[in-house]
Simulated assay, not measured.
Amino acid sequence: MKGSASISPDLIWTGDINQRPAVQDGFDRSRTVRFYDTTLRDGEQAVGVVFSADAKYEIARALDELGVGRIESGFPRVSEEDTLAVRRILDAGLKSEIWGFARAVKADIDAHIELGTTSVLIEIATSEQKMQAYGFTRESVIARMSDAIRHARTHGMRVNFFPVDATRSDLGFLEQVYKAAIAAGASEVSVVDTIGACAPEAVEFLIGKVASWVGPEVPIHWHGHNDFGLATAAAIAAVRGGATWIQGTINGMGERAGNADICEVALALQCLYNVPVEMDLSKARKVSELVRRAGDYQVDRWKPVVGESLFVRESGAVAAQFHMPDAIEPYSSSIVAAHRGIVLGKKSGLANIELKVKELGLAVPEDKFSVLLAQVKEQSTRTHRLVSDVEFVAMASAC
């Protein structure tokens, strides 16, 4: 296991209310929560995103630096480029474990065996809706899954059983499937919320159920999606229920509303619930930017952890408190290696002018601040944008 980067309590300013037993009880803090990143496979399923083999290799290296315990290298049968990417990632000598993804199909598993993958996540549908869509029966699901797991185990692979749409599956059948997977040789299991339809309270209940079925020695993963905006909350509930691995992606990218954002989950677990995690959040913004460039997309400026405006202030009322970070922020910007700064715009006040003058080292008399503020507000209102530092220097020079 990689070392986890703990966060000093002095850098977290969330208040005492989170320390109440109702919030903190139920977590096993003797175990470090680890992350299984599926950006290269499930993340790439986001509409319109295509990662090149080179990009996947660079992303894998960045995930390794982030401290991700496991990286899902991809699905080599998708294309030759995916095969190349998996091979390069396997050969990179990363500290992270490299896992493969396969359907319960021998040919999928063989593709990984040929490349040298030693650990594989094997999926098959278990909900009535999904089984009907694929033309499966309950009997055929168990037979296919068991055969696939045994095939992988025969070739020395570790197996994580991944029941698609587990959260909408009949509990009696789900118990049967999990137990059959363990009997066939799976050493780990996932609880999968394929369409993001499981409330956090239900997640905690289901994780507990699965734990009772598979036993205390079998690690449980949670794989959740964000269709109701609850992916992070569901992941927290999964940890409280007994999951020790959280699957997700960088930036929460993925199909529909995306997957759980592993960096958001890591931040919340540490800062709100005092749960140890394996991740260096100071690298999160760098990895986020790399993935965005490779996928040719953007995230909201106000997105948790990685948004560019999280620690930037325009409002005059807030800028007046800028000297006390704990008055205007829930945690220190140093946790995620973000820049704190002041910008100038329509909502600015005299405090913004004062701070910006000091930041830029300008020789502007204090009695000119109100004049500059009026000019800033007028220009920002007229142009519908912020006033740049270059523009502000010109304004100040003309005063």
Rank of each mutant, 00 (worst) to 15 (best):
M145S: 13
G224I: 10
I328H: 12
A234H: 03
N352M: 04
A398K: 14
R385N: 10
V23C: 05
F136L: 15
A85C: 03
Y36C: 00
S380N: 03
S332V: 00
I342W: 06
D91H: 05
S334E: 13
K209M: 15
K356Y: 02
G258L: 04
E366P: 01
V86P: 15
V336N: 10
V343K: 11
V214G: 04
L350A: 09
A183Q: 07
Q270C: 08
H221Y: 11
T154N: 12
L281C: 04
E308T: 09
F162N: 09
C263W: 01
L66P: 00
M324E: 12
A22H: 10
A107N: 10
V210A: 02
G208I: 07
I71Y: 14
G215P: 06
I250L: 02
Q129R: 13
T126N: 12
S332N: 11
V318Q: 10
D16H: 07
L269C: 04
V203Q: 00
I335D: 11
E201Q: 10
D367M: 00
W245Q: 02
R385S: 15
W13A: 01
Y297F: 15
L115H: 14
R292T: 03
F228Q: 05
A166E: 02
Y273M: 08
R144C: 13
E354P: 00
A62E: 02
I195D: 11
T117C: 12
A148E: 13
A338E: 02
A374D: 13
K303E: 07
A396Q: 00
E97Q: 15
I149M: 15
A5V: 12
L171F: 03
D28N: 13
A186C: 00
Q321A: 08
R87F: 10
N18H: 10
D170K: 02
A394E: 03
V239I: 13
W245S: 01
A148H: 08
R88N: 12
Y331R: 05
A374L: 03
V68Y: 03
A46W: 06
Q379H: 07
A148F: 08
H323S: 10
A363T: 14
F161L: 09
D64R: 08
N18G: 04
V192I: 08
